[in-house]
């Protein structure tokens, strides 16, 4: 019995050690673990024109202009985090989910003129999942504008009965 107990305490002590070591390491590398920086981070400190970085945020409402340059599609838009916004240019094919109000992550460099030249744009969808008719219903009732931000709290809509869904019977409950 005592041997088992001793082994257990040993194990707990080792676990504590490994856990705190991991916590220390993670907090030490905190800045390197972020996948992207926000527009307000760039506003606070210009990273330099040669540094390649990822810029993340929402595509600002009404900022998207699609055109072409030398036969290549060229898109201009602004990425915002609500406090600051950074103008972005991107020459290439935007992902399907790209739209105003969508979260995106752009890889590129920030020029001296403050324009971010993206070499790659990824769409970052959120964690809400809803059928088209529910989204339409929310929009029609004026409860949600997808261009402006995330949908209202899930409890207000996740039992909403659309035209014909399997869970329609649950809506009453």
């Amino acid at each position: 019995m005592t041997r088992k107990r001793r082994r257990l305490y040993w194990l707990l002590a080792c676990g504590l050690g490994v856990g705190s070591a991991a916590a220390l390491a993670l907090s030490a590398f905190r800045d390197n673990l972020v996948f992207f920086v926000l527009p307000s981070d760039l506003a606070a400190q210009h990273p330099g024109p040669d540094r390649t970085l990822r810029l993340g945020g929402l595509v600002a409402e009404g900022s998207v202009m699609r055109g072409s340059e030398d036969g290549h599609p060229l898109a201009r838009f602004r990425i915002t985090d609500g406090r600051d916004a950074v103008p972005v240019t991107f020459s290439g094919i935007l992902p399907d989910l790209f739209r105003e109000g969508q979260g995106v992550v752009a890889l590129g460099t920030l020029g001296r003129d403050g324009v971010f030249h993206a070499a790659e744009v990824l769409a970052k969808h959120d964690e809400t999942y809803m059928p088209k008719d529910v989204a339409e219903a929310l929009k029609q009732k004026g409860l949600w504008n997808p261009k402006a931000g995330p949908p209202p709290p899930a409890s207000t809509w996740n039992t909403l009965a659309p035209a014909k869904a399997g869970a329609a019977t649950k809506a009453g409950g």
């Binding site: 972020v34 993340g56 039992t159 909403l160």
Partner: peptide
């Protein structure tokens, strides 16, 4: 939750309603 990631945060949590339509949750 700790870092900003491309991956979206959890849809289903112990504390709040799942931000998912019930016809998708089942």
């Amino acid at each position: 939750d700790w870092w900003n990631t491309l991956h979206q945060p959890a849809t289903i949590s112990l504390t709040g309603a799942p931000s998912m339509y019930l016809g998708m949750l089942w």
